[in-house]
Design a protein around this nucleic acid. Structure first.
Length: 489
RNA sequence: GGUCGGUUAACCGAGUGGCUAGGUAGCGGUCUGCAAAACCGUUUACGGCGGUUCGAAUCCGCCACCGACCUCCA
């Protein structure tokens, strides 16, 4: 495969041709969720974005190892809440074991991800399952002089790191500015500098999630897991690291510092960040309380929703925007996405019924080329969709007889839709009535024939009543030149 | 305050130094017993002010507004 595929590297702030370190293998690491409450629309964005990447890389015949972690320990509440562990806090509130909380929300996360038709990553490692690896990394950092212990906790020495490497290169931050901007003057702070971050925290007596170590009974810092697990599963240097833009600082910056300090070299070659979903112009986040969970979207029970939206509508909605743009949530936008998605699916249904002609009036190879160009350009799914809609227009024109497709071109167009819509964009037809499909279609044939009889006798009242009754039952009847077709509402 | 990004028609959202993005919604038409679908045509655009250029919504500068991030025990 020639590598025309370019991706925007957050590190260089430029689009770069993608060349894996060890082709045909590609290592991909993506920051997964902290599992302490139900997944919301914001979680769907990275999941779908990197699913798209994963699918496209595989389509390009790369052998991809896709690692997406699950944070089940170490992610503390920020500022507001005394820095309690997010999961422990939830456990206390719900009277559950921390690991019960973790299990509950892993289950709902994975369920929602399946509904969105994202493929399972190759490995989904959990932070709590890699305490040893994280401790080893801490040892390494202490040995190399980039970490120090105070009262049983271990901190990363950012100032020391900055002497040799540049701290802040990913987020464009300069240490001196960070220093001057730091607002706290904590008297009892154990850290040498406010911007140092915890690698290991000594557990207070009431803290539940704790592991023994030579420093203290404690737990790992949040940033550590990603360094430890990416190195373990993808090696010291790997191709792509993804995650939400809000993780750039401090999380990814700290990851870079940890991995670089421990290994003497950087581990990530391409950093990719998806943008946020906004609601009324503001980031949708649990901490802001303005989020809509995926279940609420699928069921439709949220004050801001006028109806339920299917998982594929949500997926289509996300794919209609480029992953590096913010995408604003609204009912209107979702409604438009729902219609658009249905139009695409109907087009594909029509495509299956097209009859070939002897000649073609449409140039399918050039359409195919444009589709690849869109994907190669940093996963430009909205542009790809616009070309697919161009394809739908062709399909409908052929169906209407204003355009023609030869057998070869028709086959090629079918393949194009299969590849781009289902394999790469990961959309799927959600049409109901799968179970009794055969019976239903036989019954519908009979009903349509009866109605045709009435129509032949110009008994319009009768034929309209049949159509009306069907509509009330959720079946839409469409009269065509020869006969009629139907679909579920 | 610092860093980064954004501002495109009714809504959502691409993109490019000169050529229709696309979807949804409007409007007019074709088809149809009527409707729906489909097709054809079509209406609202590039935040403001300057500059570069034969030409800028696109490049540069300034301004306005919006957003993200600015750590771990606030």
């Amino acid at each position: 495969m020639d590598n025309r595929f370019t991706i925007y590297n957050s590190l260089s702030r430029k689009k770069e041709p993608f060349t894996p370190l060890h082709p045909p293998f590609v290592g991909l690491y993506v920051c997964g969720p902290t599992v302490y409450s139900d997944p919301h629309l914001g979680h769907a964005r990275p999941a779908v974005t990197f699913d798209l990447l994963y699918r496209y890389l595989m389509h390009l015949e790369y052998m991809v190892r896709y690692v997406r972690n699950i944070t089940d320990v170490g992610h503390l509440e920020n500022d507001a809440d005394e820095g309690e562990d997010k999961i422990e806090k939830k456990a206390r509130l719900e009277h559950l074991e921390p690991m019960e909380v973790v299990q509950k929300y892993i289950n709902s996360f994975l369920k929602n991800m399946e509904q969105l038709n994202t493929l399972h990553p190759s490995i989904e490692p959990r932070a709590s399952g890699h305490i040893i690896e994280q401790q080893q990394l801490i040892e390494e950092l202490i040995k190399k002089g980039y970490a120090y212990e105070v009262n049983g906790s271990v901190y990363f020495d950012v100032l020391k790191y900055n002497e040799k490497y540049k701290y802040g290169k990913l987020s464009g931050r300069v240490l001196e500015e960070l220093q001057s901007n730091t607002r706290t003057l904590d008297k009892q702070d154990e850290k040498r500098n406010p911007f140092d971050f915890a690698l290991w925290k000594k557990a207070t007596p009431e803290h539940l999630m704790r592991w023994p170590s030579r420093w203290s009974d404690g737990y790992p810092g949040w940033h550590l897991e990603c360094s430890a697990m990416s190195i373990k599963y993808l090696g010291e240097v790997f191709d792509i690291h993804g995650g939400g833009m809000d993780l750039q600082f401090p999380h990814h910056e700290c990851e870079i510092a940890q991995s670089t300090a421990a290994q003497g070299k950087e581990s990530v070659r391409y950093w990719m960040h998806n943008n946020m979903i906004t609601i009324n112009g503001q980031k949708m986040a649990r901490s802001l309380g303005n989020f809509i969970t995926l279940d609420q979207l699928f069921i439709g029970n949220h004050p801001l929703l006028t109806q339920a939206y299917s998982p594929m509508t949500i997926r289509f909605f996300l794919l209609q925007a480029h992953y590096r743009s913010t995408i604003d949530f609204s009912n209107e936008a979702l409604l438009a996405a729902e219609k658009g998605f249905q139009k695409l699916m109907k087009g594909i249904e029509t495509l299956d019924k097209l009859k070939p002609s002897l000649t073609s009036t449409i140039d399918i190879p050039s359409l195919r080329k444009k589709c690849y160009e869109a994907m190669d350009d940093d996963l430009n799914s909205p542009v790809l969709l616009s070309y697919l809609f161009e394809g739908v227009k062709y399909i409908n024109s052929v169906s209407d007889g204003t355009e023609k497709l030869s057998i070869n071109e028709l086959t090629s167009l079918k393949d194009l839709f299969k590849v781009f819509v289902f394999d790469i964009l990961g959309l799927k037809d959600e049409n109901i009535s799968k179970g009794d499909e055969k019976l239903t279609s036989e019954l519908m044939k009979i009903i349509i024939n009866l109605r045709q009889g009435a129509k032949n006798k110009k008994e319009w009242a009768e034929s309209d009543k049949i159509r009306e009754d069907l509509k009330n039952a959720g079946i839409i009847l469409k009269d065509l030149k020869d006969g009629a077709e139907w679909e579920m509402e």
